[in-house]
Amino acid sequence: MVTINVLGQLEVIAGGRDLAPTAPRVKAVLALLALNANRVVGTDTLFAELWDDRPPRSAATTLQTYVYQLRRILDSIPQGDRRCDIVTKAPGYVLRTGETDAERFLTVAEQGRCLWRQGHVAEAAERLRQALGLWRGHALADINLGPELTIHKAHLCELRLRMLELRIQADARLGRHQDLIPELRSLVAEHRLNERLHAQLIDSLRAVGCRAEALRAYQDLRRVLKSELGLEPAPDVQRLQAEVLNGVHGGSVTALLRTG
């Protein structure tokens, strides 16, 4: 069976081999079709991705050539393993395939979010961990992104971050603060302006009795926000800092930490 993956470098896995094309624009066409699997992608959308607002006169013929190259790759897969093809359907093309890793991520992430809302915290944490485990790096990592794929990537990356925040919140609810601290330190270094992650780090440090470190974490956030945006931390984070200063233990996690 063919598996098409976009949550990392583009992969077309069949029979244990990666058959992904190497030509940059052919890869872009496949990625856009995969991100819209089993739905029609119009030729105008593909033109916009490949050439922005300056398609050449030969755009239609060139696109047909790219699709032909992709069909040749899929046709090289034994019929019993294929279950994947590209069909012409007005006003463009459809990649008919099973679930891609992006679709699987969306499905499993939604399952995790539903479990969280239902109060099944441990199950939610595990399901969200499974969803996040589908990522092999940055989405579409080896593709030259045009405007359409840029939008898709931004959406996937934003959802990944939200699900990561929710998984961390679930782990915190389960009392796994000590294990979370190293991960959160790394995340706040990567997402310096994300107040939710900073707040969770402060809360986890407080939970394990590291008041001084929690206060330093707050001051680190305050410096970053002040220097880069000219802002103070959100009121919820300021209240969290006040709880730390006043020695409040086991206080409720602030509204800023709630997600899902």
Rank of each mutant, 00 (worst) to 15 (best):
R54C: 12
P21F: 13
A20R: 12
V41P: 07
L70C: 07
L35K: 00
A28I: 02
T65Q: 14
G42F: 14
D53H: 15
R25I: 00
L33T: 00
P21C: 06
T43C: 10
I73A: 04
A59H: 15
D75T: 02
T43F: 13
L32R: 04
A37N: 09
T45Y: 12
T61R: 15
W51F: 15
P24N: 04
P55T: 01
N36I: 03
V26H: 02
A28R: 09
A28T: 00
E49M: 11
A23W: 10
D18F: 04
A34W: 05
K27H: 06
P24S: 06
L35W: 03
T61A: 15
V41S: 07
A37V: 05
R57K: 13
K27G: 03
R57P: 11
L46F: 12
A59S: 13
R39H: 15
A20P: 03
A34F: 12
G42N: 09
V41L: 09
S58R: 14
P24V: 01
P56F: 13
N36Q: 07
L33E: 04
A59W: 15
A37H: 09
D53Q: 14
P56E: 08
V40E: 07
Q64V: 00
A59Y: 15
V26S: 01
R54I: 01
Q69P: 07
D44V: 04
Q69S: 11
V26L: 03
R25C: 05
P56C: 07
V40H: 05
K27N: 02
A28C: 05
L74Q: 09
L32T: 00
I73Q: 10
Y66Q: 06
G15T: 02
L32E: 02
P24R: 03
D75F: 14
W51R: 02
A23M: 04
V41K: 06
R25S: 06
P21N: 08
P55K: 06
Q69G: 01
D53C: 07
Y68K: 14
A23C: 00
R71C: 07
N38V: 02
L35N: 01
P21T: 00
V41C: 08
G16A: 06
T43S: 11
D44E: 13
D44T: 04
Y68S: 09
A60Q: 11
A20N: 11
E49G: 04
P21V: 00
Q69C: 08
N38G: 08
D18M: 09
Q69E: 12
T61E: 14
I73S: 10
L50G: 02
Y68V: 00
V67E: 03
P21R: 05
T45I: 07
L74F: 12
Q69I: 00
R54H: 14
V67G: 04
E49L: 13
P55Q: 08
P55C: 11
L35Y: 02
R71W: 11
N36S: 12
Q64N: 13
T65F: 15
D44H: 12
T65A: 12
P56N: 06
L74Y: 08
T62W: 14
P24I: 03
L35A: 03
G42D: 13
P56Q: 07
V40L: 09
L50I: 01
A20T: 01
D18G: 04
D18L: 03
A60I: 04
L19T: 01
D52V: 04
L32N: 02
T43L: 14
I73D: 09
D52L: 13
A48L: 15
L70F: 13
R71L: 05
L50C: 03
A59T: 00
L63S: 03
V41R: 04
